[in-house]
């Protein structure tokens, strides 16, 4: 079953087209990542796939039906955490649990929230407000909030964006485990700016970039994607242990930088008298 789907989606802000002809299909249980340069429209794409913003043309679907708002049994980790500052970490997670399981009792809501906060190592910081937490801890609360509703579909927008390498690694492992927690595994669409992170976590990786179309309209398009054929969850040292993984990284890095190279300074290209399209 196709849980997350975009069909021929286009999106412009004002007169500027950001995304052109986006086609994307994520199957049940699949973990798909999108990598792309900053400002290429990744967040826009994710919000479109999550039914939070409408495409100008084309469609966003789930299970073959057009999305009407954010889907049921789904959660999202926002790029900037988006915790409510007047609630403690625990209350932030409880609010989500209450909405996900309205039939539960208050005690059960709290237990569930506490369990997921403990899972991300925040057992001691549950009473703290977001403003009293470090960036990494906020990120953890946001992840706990997303997983505590036991979602079938997960949208992740650079969930480890502002973290140091070490914390990032720990949380990546936690995320991988959380995804496997339910059977069948959660369907996930993740945005990231790290190729290695994408390889570590996903079944398939797509690149979003402007390499296809040069000239006046710099709208980004989605590449066909690269499969990552290792079983999940994967060891943290995947990149050093596997030649295949290194090959996949080289391919993706190639994809990403080709867009950048084509937009090299014009003066430079002119001084070297080589035909541009050669």
């Amino acid at each position: 079953m196709t849980r997350i789907e975009l069909k021929n989606a286009n999106k412009s802000y004002g007169t500027r087209q950001v995304l052109a002809n986006i086609n994307l299909a994520v199957q049940e249980g699949e973990f798909v990542s999108i990598v792309g340069a900053s400002g290429s429209g990744k967040t826009t794409l994710l919000k479109m796939a999550a039914g939070m913003i409408q495409p100008d043309s084309g469609a966003a679907l789930s299970n073959g039906e057009a999305l009407n708002g954010f889907p049921h049994r789904a959660s999202i980790v926002f790029q900037n955490y988006s915790l409510l500052p007047w609630l403690s970490s625990l209350e932030n997670v409880i609010l989500a649990v209450e909405s996900g399981f309205p039939e539960w009792t208050a005690t059960r809501h709290q237990e569930q929230a506490e369990r997921y906060l403990q899972m991300v190592g925040l057992g001691k910081a549950m009473a703290k407000r977001p403003s009293q937490l470090s960036g990494g801890m906020r990120q953890r609360v946001a992840i706990a909030r997303a997983f505590a509703v036991e979602p079938e579909i997960l949208f992740l927008d650079e969930p480890f964006g502002a973290l140091d390498a070490l914390t990032r690694q720990t949380l990546q492992q936690e995320l991988a485990q959380l995804c496997q927690l339910r059977k069948p595994a959660a369907t996930a669409l993740m945005i990231t700016n790290s190729v290695d992170e994408a390889i570590l976590l996903s079944d398939r990786i797509l690149t979003l970039g402007r390499n296809g179309n040069r000239g006046e309209s710099p709208a980004a398009t989605l590449s066909d994607g690269v499969d990552v054929p290792f079983p999940r969850p994967r060891p943290a040292d995947l990149m050093t242990g596997s030649e295949d993984a290194v090959r996949i990284r080289a391919r993706l890095t190639g994809f990403l930088s080709s867009g950048v190279r084509r937009r090299a300074p014009v003066s430079h290209l002119q001084s070297v008298s080589v035909p541009l399209e050669a």
Binding site: A50, N80, S82
Partner: peptide, 21 residues
Amino acid sequence: QDYLNVATVLRLSPWRRFTKV
């Protein structure tokens, strides 16, 4: 907008959206 987005993705009812956000 971030806080309103939270209300949206948690699918809060209008009343809870009002009292909680």
